[in-house]
Every structure is written in C-alpha cells, then in structure tokens.
Write a protein that binds this DNA or RNA. Sequence first.
DNA 1: TTGAAAGCGCTAACAA
DNA 2: TTGTTAGCGCTTTCAA
Lengths: 343, 343
Amino acid sequence: MAQARAATIEDVAREAGVSRAAVSKVIRNAYGVSPAMRERVNAAIEVLDYRPRIAARTMRGSSFTLGIELPHIGNPFFAKIIAGATAALQGTDYQLIIAPADTDGEEGVRAIGALADRQVDGIVAISPLVSPEWLERLATRVPVVMLGRHDHAHSYDTVTGDDVEGTRLVMEHLFELGHRRIVHLTRSEEVTRASSGNPHAIRLARYRAHMQEAGFARHIRVVRTGMTEESARLDTLALLDQELPTAIFVGNDELALGTLRAVAEHGLSPAEVSVVGYDDIDIASHPAISLTSVNQAGEAMGERAIRLLLERIQGRTEPTNFSVEPSLKVRGSTRPAPTEPTP
Amino acid sequence: MAQARAATIEDVAREAGVSRAAVSKVIRNAYGVSPAMRERVNAAIEVLDYRPRIAARTMRGSSFTLGIELPHIGNPFFAKIIAGATAALQGTDYQLIIAPADTDGEEGVRAIGALADRQVDGIVAISPLVSPEWLERLATRVPVVMLGRHDHAHSYDTVTGDDVEGTRLVMEHLFELGHRRIVHLTRSEEVTRASSGNPHAIRLARYRAHMQEAGFARHIRVVRTGMTEESARLDTLALLDQELPTAIFVGNDELALGTLRAVAEHGLSPAEVSVVGYDDIDIASHPAISLTSVNQAGEAMGERAIRLLLERIQGRTEPTNFSVEPSLKVRGSTRPAPTEPTP
DNA sequence: TTGAAAGCGCTAACAA
DNA sequence: TTGTTAGCGCTTTCAA
C-alpha cells in the first residue's frame, strides 16, 4: 500500500517538459500560453491526476474559499440561506464552507476567527452579539457581509429583513383579530440588548411600541427563552401556567414550534391561544402546523450576501446595506381573540 | 485606512527578541521552552494580535481542519449529525467545516474533492453514489469516514444505522396493525441501485423481502421520488390518485413530511392511510405531526464519525465499521388498517 | 511566449 | 534550551 506522493505542479512541469510557471498559467487560464503548450500541460495534468493544493495558492493570494458562520445549524431558516448562497456560487471558482458555531456569543466569534485564520476570501456571518468594532477590524482584512444586523458599518455590508415592517404586519394582524393580551416570547436580554440592533432586539422594541400606541401598554409582557425549540417549549409551558394570554408573538419559527408544542400539551387550541412566528420556515406551511409567520426570503438573503461578497472581492469598498421585504403568511395558528368574559 | 499587514511569526519573533522557531514552539505548546521565553513570546503575541496562518501550517503538515460533506443541508437529520460532530470536537484543536453539496451524485464528489484540495486532516462524507474505488483512493491520502454506507472498505471507516433492523421494526409494526397494502416511497433507482448498499437500497430490499415473506408479494408497490419534501408531496399525490394503500412506508422523515402533506391535502386521515418515516427528526414528535419513525441517533453517529477520524489521525489503520441500534417511535401517524370492504 | 527565481509563513531537523 | 536553515507548493515579477 505504498502510497505515491500526490503530484505537484513540479511533477506536471517535468512530465510536460515545461516550467512550473507555464503550468501555473495553464491552470489559472492566464494570458500568454500557446495552444500547443496548453495541450501538453493539460495532458500531463490528466496523466498525473494533478490537483493544485489550495494551501499553496493561499500563501500567494486567494484561497478560492468563501466562509459562512452559522449559529445553531438546526434552524431551518439558515438552510434557506445556505441554499441561496450555494446557488449564487454556481459557476464560479469559489467553494463555500460553513463553520458551525452552536451559539450566538463566544462560539460565533471563535468560528469567524477560524474562517479568518484559514484566509477565506470572504466571510458571511450571522452573529448578533459581536461588537461592531471587532467586525470593522476584521473587515479591513477580509470582505465581510453580516446577516441580520441593522448597524451601518464603514467596512462591511449587511443583508437584513425589514424587522420593523415585519413586526408591524404581525401586530396589526393580531390587533385586527381583536387580540390585546399579547405576549412576546423572545431570546435572552443579552441578545435583545445587543447594540447592533439585531432582529430580535428590533422585534421586541417594535412589539413594545405597537402595544403602547394601541393603548395596550398594561398588557405588555415579555418572556425570555433560549435558542432551541425545547427551551421555548419549557418557557411557554411556564408562561401558560400563569395568566393566559390570547396570543403569543414568538421571536422566530423554530421557537414558535416549541410554543405550539407547549400550547398543545397544555390542552389549548388555536382558538384559545394564537401563535405567530417569524421566518416562515418550510414546516410552518404544513397543514398540521399551519403557523402564521413572517416570510423574509432566506434564499434571497443568502444569494445577496454572496453577491455582495463577490463585489467586494472585485474591489468595491463603499458599504452596502440590503434589505428584503417581509410578508405575512396568515395561517390557522392565529384566530380571532376569544371574547373576554364579562366581569 | 492604511491597513497594517497582519503580524507574522517573524514579527512576533522580532518583537520578543527570539527566533521564529521559539515562537513556533510556544504556539504549538511544544517541548523545550523555558517559562521566561514562553512569557515573552506570549506577551509579543498579545501585543501584535498575532494569529498563525493555517495555510502556512498546512504546507508543513496538518491544517487542523476536519471537513464534512453533506448532500442537502435542509435535511434536519444532518443537523443532528453536525451537532454530534461539533460536540466531539470540543476541547480539541480541530475546526469543523461543512461543504454543502445539494445533491447525492456529481456535486457530492465535487464537494469532497474541494475538501481534499484544502488538505483537511480528515473527511466525513454522506455520499451514497460515489464508487468504493474512488473512496479507497481518496482514503489512502486522507482519513475518511463514510456515513450510511454498508460497504466494508479497506482504507476507510463507516458509521451506519442498522437499516435491516430498522426496516424490520417498521414492517412488523405495520403488519401487526393489519396492513397489507403497503406502498414504499423511496428515492430514485439511481440511488437505490448504488452498489454500496446505502440506506435507501437496503430499506427497499428489506421492504420487498418482508412483504414477500408475509405473503403479500402481490401488494408490493414501490414509488419513486426525489430528495425534497416537495417532490415527495407531488409523488404521493399522484400515488393517492391511483389505488389507495392503507399504509405508506417512506424512505426518510423529510420525504415523509411531504407525504403527510399530500395525505392531508387529499382529505385523508391517519385512520385511512398510515405513514411511517425514518430518522426521527425533531418535528416528527410534534403532537400536530406525530409521525411514526425509526430513530437512529444522529448525534451519536456524528460523534462516532469524528472519533473514528481522530483515531485514524492518531495512526489507526484497521478499518472500523460502527453501527447504531435503531428503535421505532410509534406515534399517531400509524393506525390499525381499515377493514377491507367485503366484496 | 516561455522560464528562472524569489518569496508567501510556517515547521522540523539539526547545530550550537 | 535556543537558533539556523531548508523546504512545503504555489504565484508572480522579470528576463530572455
């Protein structure tokens, strides 16, 4: 099983009887190679089954690799983003790699750093908790596009949903159905406090504002939970054990699935407690789930993020902020508010 | 915005007044460095905000990167595998990167190749259609663990579920409920024909065998579909428009969700058509979905795959095949077969 | 159009 | 314990 060393550019050059530089030009489709030389080199590449080492290329320039950092791979919304990103990369020389982080904070920074250490040619990240300063510094070294951050940065781009509009759609829908006692289930304070104005922070702030403006300030109630469906289930269960709201506006669909679970376990129906999510993940439209949710075109976001990255690699330097239009998908999980028992 | 060049090991050495080799030793925690030297070097690293370039390290040895290739990122079962893999990597120096492929065939090979070109220290892949020969060749260059392949290879390891047992659990469950007209909805012939004995091929073969042995050979009916929930929905719809089975055994949960959708759209209830999936993705246990499914411990598979990879990196060469025990999760989507109308 | 040669940042002998 | 040095496999001037 004596494994022959994999062929290098040197081997190809020798086999073809040309210089390394010539081979390099051929594999990069560079100028200044005669058809004859191209042919000989390609033949040698074929014979030796040669593949350029990316690491060696990276040392001299680009790695032909784009990295995307994802907190919590389990969220189906992120899968949409990846699908869009992959599509945008079709036909280019770039390979997409995903660095999973499994949490918003420290881990996200670690994963982004790992991508940077690998000298990817560009980074897409979903990391609401990283400081803008840290990102600005990073972005001076490598093109960066942040997803879901509403900050206007100097040196990186952003792709966001319009969370102000999305929340408006949700709240007006619930108000029209007659709901007043609307609870907002969202992530930890650490998340919603983040200076960057991340999606959860904005949804929370707008929830408060709408409740206030509608004259339901006394019904404002914010409940905190973690990042997973299971934590949402548990916190919803606890919530329902106390006073019963007529509707729950949940920070995203993944959490909303946990809320729906809890509502069912509690023996309640959508007629008694309405639930609204955010993201419109695929399962939300399943007839058995039928979750009202805000669609924000994850594929488009992923695709746009990649395009912005490629533009920056091409040399653009002015920061760009792209926002996708949200739309409300009304489904069975929201019903008219039950009429209040007359006191 | 004149961006200073990022610090190299050379800069650190100069700052600390030592040699590059000394710095190298410190950052690798190698033997033979005095506490004093370690301290000075670490101080310099801090000051310069130095981070070693992985590409340069890669050229001399390892990349401290493990790659996992995934067809179709949207499948929640893969998310479990990633979770297990990430967990197994905690506390090690390795970074996990995911190469998304979005299809089983060509694209999978491309993605695995991209990981190899990046000289990852090990590769985990889910790629039922690649030829064993190709994998054997790959595996002589880099440690490889294949998920879901039942072939016994010389130079790579495998981690599988016991699909024979899993299918037995499904079929016996359905038989006990009185089902005879059981349709099997599975992937394309290309997939189930694959020489490697991939999960779908085995489930199909065992479905046939069980039907035969139970004396229901005349009820054997295999319907083909694609890789996505949507294609399963469409093909189930077509299926239901023809003769009505009492049960549908679907190749995996993601497809089964499409089948459930189609059944609902067709106005049928679980009492009329039972549905069984495979993988036991999280949503399967949701009360509104309640999909009977075979659990095969995705986290354990991901974790084990990484462990096997790390063992190989440590030097193991004997091939290892690891199999996880499946268990049937019986839920509301399977009910006793409706009694046949007396002719 | 082609080739020679320098160098990217690191690790690993080997010497001191 | 510390430093010197020779590469790893590419790309990229710069000459020829």
